[in-house]
Amino acid sequence: MDVILLQLLNGLDKGGAYALIALGLTIIFGTLGVVNFAHGALFMLGAFCAVSVQALLTISKKVKDESIKFFDAYKEIPYLEAWWGDTGAMIIDYAVPISILIAIPLMLLIGLGMERGLIRYFYKRPHAEQILVTFGLAIVVQELIKAQFGANPIPTPAPEVIAGSANVGLWVGLGESVVYPWWRLIYLAFAGVVIALAFAFLNLTTYGMVVRAGMADRETVGLLGINIQRRFTIVFGMAAVIAGLAGVMYTPILPPDYHMGMDFLVLSFVVVVVGGMGSLGGAVLAGFMLGILQSFASMNEVKSILPGIDQIIIYLIAVVILLVRPRGLLGRKGVMES
């Protein structure tokens, strides 16, 4: 029982990341009709937002290390610590939460720039060319990050206060064997909040309603004299922010490296396909579902019966879904069905 709970939590965690990326992907596909292969790069950029903030906060000066007497030793002390002592150290400790605040406007800008500067020229071009140009963009972004930050994963820990693990098992009456890192729980809650906000925005505000109307029938909404184009641009920016936030929050779980975007992109695409192209609920549902399934498939008990299943389960499900129900779990009828 406790093993199952643990795997469930693990799965929800990964599922949260899939769901957030897939949500953006599907919003972009639904509104702009663009297949964005560079969406993983946005996730990765978010993560490197956190890395940059951490690097900025820890800019250091060299000071003589007085504790070593035999020779001249120097140590590096971040300016923040040098100036403000413990307060400075605490700010550094909170690098990841701080970067969330910075990531939001930054990712919005990046998203808007990307849409205005590149994507909009590809609305009318074939899907193949959209895939190719965004794929090229993804490579470029990835390589720029690699050139700047190197190829190795960069650890960006969560604040010390929540470094430990929560005794989830005790909460639900399963004994002390189920412990789970606090940060992952926070991540899960965060993913839930972002998803809820996105849904609230799209479902409860008139602005979001028009966007959804545009997803359903863009031409008609255009006929009403609404500048749907501007709204779509902003929606693209939002999708970028969502992906970026997912990235920022994921850094304490997985030290970011330059190819994490690509790794998550492929899976997120599969998630979108399983959920239904253009379906927001489908993306979220499929994200969590596949995350959980993947987590259960990597249990030793399962692997001993079906070796290697953990490696391919997601793809296998995608293949089955595409063949049996091509519009995906919650996809609108007729969308992308050949």
Partner: peptide, 19 residues
């Protein structure tokens, strides 16, 4: 399937083989 679905299916198969 055709179009983008075909692309993603082939991608999924290739990743599956790779894994």
């Amino acid at each position: 399937r055709s179009g983008i679905y075909f692309s993603i299916l082939t991608l999924a198969f290739a990743q599956m083989s790779y894994n």
